[in-house]
Measured scan of single mutants.
Amino acid sequence: MTVLPKDIPGDSLKVTVGTANGKPGDTVTVPVTFADVAKMKNVGTCNFYLGYDASLLEVVSVDAGPIVKNAAVNFSSSASNGTISFLFLDNTITDELITADGVFANIKFKLKSVTAKTTTPVTFKDGGAFGDGTMSKIASVTKTNGSVTIDP
C-alpha cells in the first residue's frame, strides 16, 4: 500500500482569532474563523484551546458560528481559569461536516476595569488537533492569535 501526501505544500487550514475593542463593562464579541476549508477536504472534527487573561476578560458565552451545522449536538465549549476549550465533531461522520469558510465560534467577553488603554492577547495554547471530512488528521493548520483592547 502506498500512502501519498494529501496536502499540497503551502496549503493549510487557517484558524484565526479576531479582535475587538471596548470600554470597561462593555461586552464584545471576538470571532474565531476558519478559511481554506474546502482545500483541506472539509473539517469533520477539531479540538483546540485559547488562552486569555482572566483578570482583564470575563467569558460571558461561547457560541457556535454559522458554519457549524447542528451545533447543539456537534459543538461544545467550556471556559475557566483563562482557557477556553473548543470541540467539534460531526456526529453523523459525513452529513454535518464544516464545508465552508466563515465564523466557527463567537466568544463574548465582558471587559474588566483598567486604568490605561490595554491590549490583551487571545492566543492559541498547545494541544488539540483538526481532522478532515474523512477524519484524517489535517497536518497543516495555520493559527493566528487575536486580541481585545480595553480603553477606559
Rank of each mutant, 00 (worst) to 15 (best):
V3N: 11
L4W: 13
L4D: 13
P5M: 06
P5D: 08
P5G: 08
K6P: 11
K6L: 13
I8S: 11
I8G: 15
I8P: 08
P9C: 13
P9H: 12
G10C: 12
G10A: 11
G10L: 13
G10K: 10
G10Y: 07
D11E: 09
S12V: 11
S12N: 14
S12K: 08
S12I: 12
L13N: 08
L13H: 10
K14D: 15
K14A: 13
K14Q: 13
K14C: 15
K14M: 10
K14V: 09
V15L: 07
T16D: 07
V17M: 06
V17R: 00
G18E: 08
G18S: 10
G18P: 10
T19S: 10
T19L: 12
A20E: 09
A20N: 13
A20R: 11
N21Q: 12
N21W: 12
N21H: 12
N21D: 11
G22N: 14
G22K: 10
K23M: 11
P24C: 14
G25I: 13
G25R: 11
G25Q: 13
D26L: 13
D26M: 09
D26Q: 11
D26I: 13
D26F: 09
T27L: 10
T27A: 11
T27W: 14
T27Q: 10
V28F: 09
V28M: 09
V28E: 10
V28Y: 05
T29M: 14
T29R: 09
T29I: 10
V30C: 07
V30D: 09
V30Q: 14
P31D: 13
P31A: 11
V32H: 09
V32M: 07
T33V: 07
T33Q: 09
T33P: 12
T33F: 09
F34L: 10
F34V: 06
F34A: 06
F34T: 08
A35N: 10
A35Y: 07
D36P: 13
D36I: 07
V37Q: 14
V37R: 07
A38P: 10
A38G: 14
N42F: 15
V43L: 07
V43P: 01
V43W: 02
G44M: 14
G44K: 00
G44L: 14
T45H: 00
T45G: 02
T45E: 00
C46D: 03
C46Y: 06
C46H: 08
C46G: 05
C46I: 01
N47F: 01
F48I: 04
Y49W: 03
Y49R: 01
Y49M: 01
Y49E: 02
Y49A: 01
Y49G: 00
Y49F: 05
L50E: 08
L50Y: 06
L50W: 12
L50V: 08
G51F: 08
G51W: 08
G51P: 14
G51S: 10
Y52E: 03
Y52R: 08
D53C: 06
A54K: 08
A54Y: 08
A54V: 12
S55L: 08
S55D: 14
S55I: 13
L56G: 12
L56W: 08
L56T: 08
L57K: 10
E58D: 11
E58M: 14
V59H: 08
V59P: 09
V60R: 10
V60I: 09
S61C: 07
S61K: 13
V62L: 09
V62H: 08
V62I: 13
V62S: 05
D63P: 09
D63H: 13
A64T: 08
G65W: 09
G65F: 13
G65E: 09
I67K: 09
I67F: 10
V68W: 01
V68G: 07
V68M: 10
K69Y: 10
N70V: 10
N70G: 13
N70D: 08
N70C: 14
A71S: 11
A71R: 10
A71Y: 14
A71Q: 09
A71M: 09
A71F: 08
A72M: 14
A72C: 13
A72T: 14
A72Q: 14
A72W: 11
A72D: 14
A72R: 14
V73R: 03
V73T: 07
V73F: 06
V73C: 12
N74S: 03
N74P: 01
N74T: 02
F75D: 01
F75P: 01
F75V: 03
S76P: 01
S77G: 09
S78P: 10
S78L: 15
A79H: 15
A79D: 15
A79Y: 15
A79N: 15
S80C: 05
S80L: 14
S80A: 06
S80W: 15
N81D: 14
N81R: 15
N81G: 15
N81W: 15
N81E: 15
G82T: 15
G82A: 15
G82R: 15
G82K: 15
T83E: 05
T83G: 15
T83Y: 15
I84W: 05
I84C: 14
I84Q: 05
S85A: 14
S85C: 01
S85E: 01
S85L: 00
S85K: 01
F86M: 02
F86V: 04
F86H: 02
L87Q: 01
F88I: 04
F88K: 00
F88N: 00
L89Y: 00
D90E: 03
N91M: 15
N91K: 06
N91E: 15
N91P: 02
T92Y: 00
T92R: 02
T92E: 00
I93Q: 02
I93N: 04
I93E: 02
T94I: 13
T94C: 03
D95N: 05
E96N: 00
E96L: 00
E96G: 03
E96I: 00
E96Y: 02
L97I: 06
L97Q: 04
L97S: 04
L97G: 04
I98V: 04
T99K: 14
T99I: 08
T99R: 06
T99N: 06
A100F: 04
A100L: 05
D101G: 07
G102M: 15
G102C: 06
G102H: 01
V103E: 00
V103W: 07
F104Y: 14
F104D: 01
F104K: 03
F104M: 02
A105Q: 00
A105L: 04
N106E: 03
N106K: 07
N106W: 01
N106T: 06
I107Q: 00
I107W: 00
K108I: 04
K108A: 05
K108M: 07
F109L: 05
F109G: 00
F109D: 00
F109P: 00
K110M: 08
L111Q: 06
L111P: 05
K112Y: 03
K112P: 03
K112C: 00
S113L: 07
S113R: 09
S113Y: 06
S113K: 06
V114K: 14
V114L: 07
T115I: 14
T115S: 07
A116V: 06
A116H: 06
A116P: 06
A116G: 06
A116W: 03
K117V: 04
K117A: 03
K117I: 05
K117E: 05
K117T: 04
K117G: 04
T118V: 04
T119W: 04
T119L: 08
T120I: 11
T120N: 09
T120H: 06
T120F: 02
P121K: 11
P121G: 07
P121T: 06
P121C: 04
T123Q: 06
T123M: 14
T123V: 07
F124S: 04
F124T: 02
F124E: 02
K125W: 07
K125R: 09
D126H: 15
G127E: 02
G127N: 01
G127Q: 04
G128S: 02
G128C: 00
G128L: 02
G128F: 02
G128N: 00
A129L: 01
F130Y: 05
F130W: 03
F130N: 00
G131Y: 00
G131Q: 00
D132R: 03
G133M: 04
T134I: 13
T134C: 14
T134Y: 04
M135K: 03
M135D: 00
M135R: 01
S136Y: 15
S136C: 15
K137H: 01
K137L: 00
K137I: 03
I138L: 02
I138S: 03
A139H: 15
A139F: 14
A139Y: 15
A139T: 05
S140L: 08
S140D: 03
V141P: 02
T142I: 07
K143G: 01
K143W: 04
K143Y: 01
K143A: 00
T144H: 05
T144R: 07
T144W: 01
N145K: 07
N145R: 08
G146R: 04
G146C: 05
G146F: 06
S147F: 06
S147P: 04
S147D: 06
S147A: 06
V148S: 07
V148P: 01
V148T: 06
T149R: 14
T149C: 15
I150E: 14
I150T: 14
I150S: 14
I150L: 14
I150Q: 15
D151N: 15
P152A: 15
P152M: 15
P152D: 04
P152S: 10
